[in-house]
Design a protein around this nucleic acid. Structure first.
Lengths: 344, 344
DNA sequence: GTGAAAGCGCTAACAT
DNA sequence: ATGTTAGCGCTTTCAC
């Protein structure tokens, strides 16, 4: 017999006994489901209150086959972007009575699949942020994760909805902003090669080039962190570009910092743009021109998609796209030579 | 009969059948617990692999009375401080095979107790960040949350360990930094009145006053956000102080922003300090002098405390204190009048 | 070392 | 409308 000695919390049967009803009735009352005689319901509730009864979620989960919890897997809890989606998902889910389990892969992408699978088993579904995962790996993983909502990437496998940010359009808008200012030598300091959103930006820039044949566009290689941006300064200077499109705000800030140390003035000597509009982008020196991404909304919509999946309420659109919008601040301006020749 | 029609995942009994052993044996093998005949163990593992068996945590949780999950309740997932502790807890806990469930009270402190209780029922313990909760409410709540680890506050109730940051010492160090620079009129732009860490700072400043009788110290009232800092600028200017101690980096940044708009130079006209050394403090204009708090470590240690509680491994110290250290950057300097009279 | 079986605390089908 | 009871999937005693 498996009579373990546990702290003996008070359970549904205690309430049933105290109220003089069956377990089922207590369960019904607690779940507010079926019509229970008001008098009995009151008696049950009184007993529950008196005993300070708190339903045990574990029993409930097992019996119902669900946990009212969803997992959110992110590659880095220190990254403002993922913090934003986590926050959005968490709040929106809480509003519907769901909780969020976090799984931070700490940038160790080899663990990502395992982590996601683990999260899925403990939860009713998972919201996956895995910008670097190979698409074949994702495609293979996706079915086992269903219900699955993807953030900033898509997959052919299964019916896994996505919430996307149109990085391609955003970078085009930023490049256009620079071109409109008069920059003819532009450099894109690209993010991680394996990043899905980097590929989107690259594709966007390809389109930009077609619309602006007179602009010389160089592609430099870097990463996604502040440090990566800082270290890219050498290449940036060497490129001779006057307009720099950084991968994101973090790298833009790193670049700004290094440029400043080198005595290169922004935006007098070079203009710099970021991407994301993280909370601190407006406090850099100079304030960063960037493409604002409504990242919390992205998280909220990821939850909305998940909820529809959970409810079987299929959405019309299975991939939602958010448009970033350019926020022009102090880090971009008319290139020096132009300013001299065209004193406005 | 309760034969629900669920997706029929493959369970332990399938493995048992395939391997030709009992459920108990499979369980033992899966948990690597008892000595099982190596041959049998291998057979079981083979069967499990072949069937792609994944133990169902719900059943496991119910049977073991634990979830291998801890809850982290924070008042605001958008605040860098709480993001830091969440990150620390999450990584450290993951290292020990635990997951974290987040509960964001969205600054609605009336919900905090309920949220914490809910989290506790779903998890094996909770790490509570509730800087504004009244101490009597906390004391009342604490026992029901055990095992409980508190961040940045203590309670008399029960054996609930705490991980603290010595805000009192930190603010004293900052004030001393200002005094050493020559500031004799200092103002503290205080945080929320109900904030525990604000009280700590206030107490620290009291000590500072005793050691620096010649310094005039004004206390202004504000809050904890960027906006609060921004709006405090009027009071700050009116105070006539040359050295300003902001509640934290966020309010300092807000203040810096407003001061800049008013044409007041930092640090030439007034010096400003923050608190926390959030990731972006070094990128403000000018870079912010602040007291660096190892916030991720705080989270890591909160987990360590929790683990000890869970294991029954009592720690020697039940309240750990982290010391902030002053990081002098560009936002503080010698006050103007002094500079004029003592051209160094 | 292995198996049989009794729960863990709850929900839901079925019967009344 | 309420009670009875069979599980949900797993762990763990207890007996072999």
């Amino acid at each position: 017999m498996a009579k373990r000695d546990r702290p003996a919390r008070i359970g549904i049967s205690d309430v049933a006994a105290k109220a003089g009803v069956s377990l089922a009735t207590v369960s019904r009352v607690m779940n507010g489901n079926f019509r229970v005689d008001p008098d009995i319901a009151a008696r049950v509730r009184a007993a529950a209150t008196e005993l300070k009864y708190q339903p045990n979620p574990m029993g409930r989960n097992l019996a119902r086959g669900k946990t009212d919890t969803i997992g959110v897997v992110v590659p880095d809890l220190g990254n403002p972007t993922f913090q934003g989606v986590l926050r959005g998902v968490s709040r929106a889910a809480a509003h519907d009575g769901y909780r969020v389990l976090i799984a931070d892969s700490s940038e160790v992408s080899s663990e990502e699949s395992i982590l996601a699978g683990e999260a899925r088993r403990r939860c009713d579904g998972v919201v996956l942020c895995a910008p670097r995962m190979g698409s074949s790996e994702l495609e293979e993983l996706a079915p086992s994760l269903h219900p699955l909502v993807l953030v900033n990437r898509t997959t052919d496998a299964e019916d896994s909805p996505s919430v996307m940010v149109d990085y391609g359009q955003g970078i085009q808008d930023l490049a256009t902003h620079l071109a409109d200012l008069g920059h003819v030598r532009i450099a894109y300091v690209s993010g991680p090669e394996s990043s899905a959103s980097n590929a989107l930006r690259l594709a966007g820039l390809e389109k930009f080039k077609q619309g602006h044949p007179h602009v010389e566009l160089a592609i430099l290689h870097s990463g996604s962190t502040f440090e990566d941006g800082y270290e890219s300064a050498g290449d940036v200077v060497a490129s001779g570009a006057t307009g720099i499109l950084a991968f994101n705000d973090l790298t833009a800030m790193g670049l700004l910092s290094s440029l400043n140390e080198r005595g290169i003035k922004v935006p007098e000597d070079v203009s710099v743009t970021g991407f994301d509009d993280i909370p601190f982008a407006q406090y850099t020196t100079p304030p960063l021109t960037t493409a604002a991404v409504p990242i919390t909304e992205v998280g909220e919509h990821a939850w909305a998609q998940m909820r529809d999946l959970l409810n079987g309420t299929s959405t019309t659109e299975s991939v939602q796209v958010f448009q970033p919008h350019v926020v022009a601040r102090g880090s971009t301006g008319v290139p020096a030579k132009l300013k001299a020749s065209s004193p406005k």
